[in-house]
Structure formats: C-alpha cells, structure tokens
C-alpha cells in the first residue's frame, strides 16, 4: 500500500515538472520580449537577446513617452477600444434579447438573417468600396468601430445565455406593464454579468488588436492604431530610429547608442500591457461564460 502511494506521488511530481515545462514554453517568448525591452541598447547589440540582460536601461521607455508617436496611437486605440466595446455590448444585447424570448413568431427567420452573414460574405473588395466610396469613412476614427460593431457569433452566445435565465423572473414585470427595454436593462442584464464580461473581453481584445482597418482606410499617421504602428516599426526600422533619436537627445547619458531596437520591443510591451494586466482578473469569468455557447452558437 505504501509503495503504491509513493509511486503515485513520484508520478504526480513528474507530471508537475512537465506542467512547469509547458508553462515555460508558453511564457518564454513573452518574457524575452519584456526583459530585453529593459536592456541597454549596447548590451543587446553585443550579447543578443538574453533571458536576463547584462545591463538594464529605461531609455527605450523614456524615448517612447518623450515623442508623440506612441502616446498618440495609444490614445486612438484606447478611444476606439472603450467606445467600440461599449457600443458593441449594447447592440449585441439589444439584438440577442428579442431573439432569446419565445414571444416573436418570426424569431427563427430573423436569427437566420443574422446567421447567414456568418456563412457568406461579399468579401473584402466590395466592403472596401462601400467604406471608401459610399460611407466615406477613410481617415475617420469610426472606421475602427462601425464595421465590427456586431459580431454574430458573440450575439448567439449571449442569446444562449439569456435563454438560460428562467423566464418567471421577468414575466411578472412584463405583466405589470414594464417596457421590453426596461426588462432588458433592469432584470436580464444584471443577471448576465458573466456573459457580459466574457463577450466584453472578446470585443475589447478584438478592437485592441485592430490593424487591418488602419492599413486599408487610414493614411493620416495621427490616427494609426497601436498594432499598426508596431507593424510599421517591424517593416521600417527608421520610424523606431526617429523615436529613439528624439528621446535620446533629451537625455544626457553615457550610453552612446540610440535605443532603436529596444524602442521597438518597448512599444510592443506597452501595447501588450493592458491585456496581460487585465487577464488574470477576467479569466475566471470567461471560462464559465465560454462553455455556455462553446460548441453550439
């Protein structure tokens, strides 16, 4: 009996060892990015990307906050992420609620109207012509928001969640003559916080990661999103050099090299920041919220 238990303990220890290794593989790339964004440019040049840099420096961060490029993109991105997520949650809830009740006879027809957009699309070219020629959204910050306001998959997940709320809870209010909007806002939404948190997170991550809209519709550099700025930093080192030079000239330092490489890494780190910080708080919601509509939309 004793040896069986011991063998199982050894097995568990080995398992935990493998788990730690898996975690390390998942985290190692992110750690390299973060650690080396704090490296001195000279140390990075000489020794390459190290697990723990030889010399630490905040110069890259000083540089990116000294010039307008990154803070401007940050403001733009925060704006369309916050406004976009709020508007998306509103339109998603407004659409999901009527489809979740059994009142409407036409609800299957309307659900199919939305479902069909997941099966078939006109493609990028007609969308591009629509947005540039007819809606005139080029070089407008709203081009980040309007085309992705309603995600039909998220809408069906929310609809399923609403259906899991017992209808007795709002039938009484309906009998007393409360309007549908009032029932939705006062009764249904407060009972749906896990779904709202999960879907809100999905929308927010979607908006935060937005760069294709910038690539297609934005030529004004002041309206670039953070992610598009990063793509440009990757493809064109001279942008990073400009930021590094500008920040560098403001700092009297013994370091002889402008931090253009670390500026790129630091920009990626501040872009990743909010999600990595929010993530541990939100993930307890989304694991439960996700399984509700996980397979069946």
């Amino acid at each position: 009996m004793h040896t069986v238990k011991r063998r199982r303990d050894v097995g568990k220890m080995a398992g935990l060892g493998v788990a730690v290794a898996i975690g390390a593989v998942a985290l190692y790339p992110v750690w390299l990015l973060v650690a080396n964004s704090f490296a001195g440019e000279g140390s990075l040049m000489r020794y390459g990307y190290l697990l723990i840099p030889h010399h630490w420096s905040l110069l890259a961060y000083v540089s990116i906050f000294d010039t307008g490029t990154v803070p401007e993109a940050y403001l733009v991105t925060v704006f369309f992420t916050v406004v976009g997520t709020l508007l998306s949650l509103i339109i998603t809830a407004l659409t999901a609620y009527p489809l979740s009740t059994r009142q409407m006879k036409n609800r299957n027809l309307i659900a199919f109207f939305f479902y069909f957009t997941m099966l078939f699309s006109g493609g990028l070219v007609p969308t591009y012509i629509l947005i540039t020629e007819y809606l005139h959204l080029s070089n407008s910050i709203w081009v980040y928001i309007f085309p992705s306001l309603l995600n039909v998959w998220n809408m069906f997940v929310m609809m399923n969640y609403f259906r899991s709320i017992p209808s007795e809870l709002y039938e009484a209010a309906r009998c007393e003559g409360a309007s549908e909007l009032r029932i939705l806002v006062r009764i249904v939404l407060p009972l749906s916080l896990p779904a709202l948190a999960t879907i809100g997170l999905f929308y927010a991550v979607g908006y935060w990661g937005e760069w294709q809209q910038a690539a297609l519709y934005i030529t004004n550099e002041n309206l670039w999103s953070l992610q598009f700025l990063i793509l440009n930093l990757i493809q064109n080192i001279s942008i990073a050099e400009q930021i590094a030079q500008a920040g560098f000239s403001n700092v009297t330092s013994a370091v002889a090299i402008a931090p253009s490489e670390t500026v790129r890494l630091a920009t990626a780190v501040v872009t990743m920041g909010p999600i990595v910080i929010l993530f541990p708080f939100l993930q307890r919601f989304f694991v439960s919220g996700l399984t509700v509509g996980a397979i069946k939309g």
């Binding site: 699309s121 006109g122 007609p126 969308t127 012509i129 629509l130 809408m155």
Partner: peptide, 20 residues
Amino acid sequence: LLIPGIVFALIFSYAPMVGI
C-alpha cells in the same frame, strides 16, 4: 430593439453582397 442590429447587418454584411 432589433433595429440597430438589423441596420448594421444590412449595411456591413448584406450591402457588400450586392457589391459582388
């Protein structure tokens, strides 16, 4: 309540289908 969602789908999903 459905109007905003339907208008959105008509503009950004169904209109491009015409553009085919």
